[in-house]
């Protein structure tokens, strides 16, 4: 079974987010870049499927050169090869543009399943997966917490997390799945894995290689335009609830909630 994993590199979740002076981007100087946490689950699931059914796991990333590090990490976890699309024309690409580039890579590949993360933890869009499935004309199941594949490898049964429960969805392969945390516990790359990863193939392509028109990507092709980025509103300073005993504090808190905030 051949599996493709779309992988985004994002700022570590520990990062403090500083807004650039132009108000349209964030300051990336001191940022540590990591594999998108949901994509770790996607890679892990791909490896488990490969371990059961055989086949190859290919990692696809769209972004600048630094993204090779995240792809190498996935290779060190056990994926077989990587493809990076790096092109100056990609600056400012939105989700649909990103999906178009991914679709252009994928049209030349043979695959049974595509795994994405539920969303990037940077722009939080949760759009690329479903955009991509539509462009490829294959079924999608998003926010998946459990995945079962029929013995003959033709049908996937995916548990999709919904508010207050789950839907169990059956789809014929090839299908696109977006991974939610809890799908699995991603493995760490082992030292031998890291050594091996260095020799695994990692192709770098431009959009011209893929036959994608520059007008379809980048800022010129974007359907979504960022007007400005702003910091969250400051919360008004809070109040410490004083009291001699826990009992007294609890009583005071109860009356604050009831009388001052009028929330209970």
């Amino acid at each position: 079974m051949n599996i493709l994993v779309c992988l985004k590199q994002v700022p570590d979740t520990e990062s403090q987010i500083k807004i650039a002076p132009d108000g349209k981007a964030i300051v990336t100087d001191n940022i540590k870049w990591v594999m998108n946490p949901y994509d770790e689950c996607a890679v892990e699931e791909a490896l488990r499927i490969k371990e059961k059914f055989g086949g190859e796991v290919t990692i696809i990333g769209v972004g600048p050169k630094r993204v090779t590090e995240a792809i190498r990490t996935a290779l060190a976890m056990g994926a077989d090869k990587g493809i990076l699309v790096d092109d100056p024309a990609l600056t400012g690409t939105d989700s649909l543009g990103t999906a178009r580039v991914l679709a252009a890579v994928i049209k030349d590949l043979e695959y049974d399943m595509i795994l994405c993360g539920k969303q990037g933890v940077d722009d939080d869009s949760a759009v690329v997966g479903s955009n991509l499935a539509e462009l490829l004309g294959i079924p999608q199941v998003s926010v998946v917490v459990k995945l079962e594949i029929s013995e003959d490898g033709s049908v996937v049964k995916a548990h999709k997390e919904v508010e207050g429960g789950a839907f169990v969805i059956e789809a014929a392969l090839p299908a696109l799945i977006t991974a939610q945390k809890g799908l699995n516990e991603p493995r760490y790359a082992s030292l031998p894995g890291i050594m091996k990863a260095k020799k695994k193939p990692l192709d770098v392509k431009t959009i011209a290689d893929l036959g994608v028109d520059a007008g379809e990507v980048g800022e010129s092709g974007a359907k979504i335009k960022v007007i400005q980025i702003t910091p969250p509103e400051e919360r008004a300073a809070g109040k410490m609830v004083e009291g001699e005993t826990p009992q007294e504090k609890a009583d005071k808190l109860a009356s604050l909630l009831h009388e001052e905030a009028k929330i209970i």
Binding site: P11, D124, I224, I227, I229, P232
Partner: peptide, 15 residues
Amino acid sequence: RPIYAGKAYATVTYT
């Protein structure tokens, strides 16, 4: 819309 899980907000529009 919140980005970085609410560490910042992006105001966006459409073309």
